[in-house]
């Protein structure tokens, strides 16, 4: 991909303080504080209804918001956002290109509104279609594409103006593995040039982000690299292998320091509150003593446990 002149000097930056979005009496965002600097891949994670879509829409300049500070790429979200939109690519949650139009017609429409010169448009469109393997389908009605192709097209469409900020709302939800990998490759190519903000419910996607923003009940509860978030979570994770993991779950929950137990396959995942933990050796011994348990091991924190622990702390707060 060619160098993006719009981006060369300006550092993409999101600077929000006490961002509030109300729908009638309901608050979708209850004072979001968020600073993001530099071209990086940022994942927005959190439970359903946390306000992820609302936050992304707000950052893309689609919503009227109230805030102490609401700067995106140096533009105030509360003011005229047209100049901001010229530098933002946005992919909504549901596929939203015109189904009746062909692939190339959809791209051309985006190009026209972004005032991309015809020659430049032709070059970029060709390149994007080649990268997404959509070139053979350029003249096919968009509605006739498969789900994965549609999402690839949506991302390519958002990348067409070579935006400084790319906002993707669960753009890989329900997409097959191959297409997800292709989309990830598209985004990876922009790493270092574009600030990419994506919400996701896939743990591997979240884990591969440079930085995560954990949102719950309309507030940012934590931000940081995946490693930093893991460090914030005061939980130890153990895996207890058993022939019938369900059978040991109740007994494990009865231990005073155990926070949560979930069974999967042939083992039970046991989370222990770090501050109450009697030490790894003792926990392993306690768990091994339960009837039916064959092996117990201490595991490094994974993304799932991290997010669930964050969700629990969010629920308590």
């Amino acid at each position: 991909m060619s160098a993006a002149p719009t981006l060369a000097g300006a550092a993409p930056e999101i600077d929000l303080a006490q961002l509030v979005k109300r729908y009638g009496r309901k608050h979708a965002l209850e004072g979001v504080d968020l600073q993001l600097t530099g071209a990086q891949l940022v994942g927005v994670v959190g439970p359903d209804g946390a306000g992820k879509t609302t936050l992304l829409r707000a950052i893309a300049g689609l919503l009227e918001v109230e805030a102490q500070r609401a700067n995106v790429l140096g533009f105030d979200l509360r003011g005229d956002v047209r100049a901001l939109k010229a530098q933002v690519g946005y992919v909504p949650q549901l596929f939203a290109l015109n189904r009746e139009l062909s692939v190339i017609e959809n791209l051309r429409f985006t190009g026209k509104l972004h005032r991309i010169a015809t020659a430049v448009f032709e070059r970029r469109a060709e390149e994007l279609l080649a990268r997404t393997a959509l070139a053979p389908f350029a003249d096919r009605p968009t509605g006739a594409l498969s789900g994965g192709m549609k999402q690839k097209l949506a991302v390519a469409n958002a990348l067409l103006p070579e935006p400084a900020l790319l906002v993707l709302d669960e753009c890989t939800a329900g997409v097959d593995v191959v297409a997800r990998a292709e989309i990830a490759a598209l985004l990876a190519a922009r790493r270092g040039e574009t600030l990419v903000l994506l919400s996701t419910s896939y743990l591997d996607e979240a884990a591969s982000c440079d930085r995560l923003v954990y949102l719950d009940a309309g507030r940012v509860l934590a931000t940081g690299t995946p490693a930093e978030l893991r460090a914030q979570v005061r939980v130890e994770l153990y895996r207890a292998w058993a022939a019938a993991p369900r059978a040991i779950a109740a007994a494990a929950r009865a231990l005073p320091y155990v926070v949560a137990v979930r069974t999967s396959g042939r083992y039970a995942r046991v989370e222990v509150a770090a501050e109450r933990s009697p030490g790894a050796a003792r926990v392993i011994a306690d768990l091994a003593a339960l009837a039916g348990v064959r092996v117990v091991e201490l595991r490094p924190l994974d993304m799932e446990t991290t997010l669930l622990a964050l969700a629990r702390s969010g629920a308590r707060a």
Partner: peptide, 14 residues
């Protein structure tokens, strides 16, 4: 309903 309005509004237009 189809979301094209949202997608179009994200482009530099009004």
């Amino acid at each position: 309903e189809s979301g094209t309005y949202e997608a179009t509004l994200a482009l530099p237009t009004s």
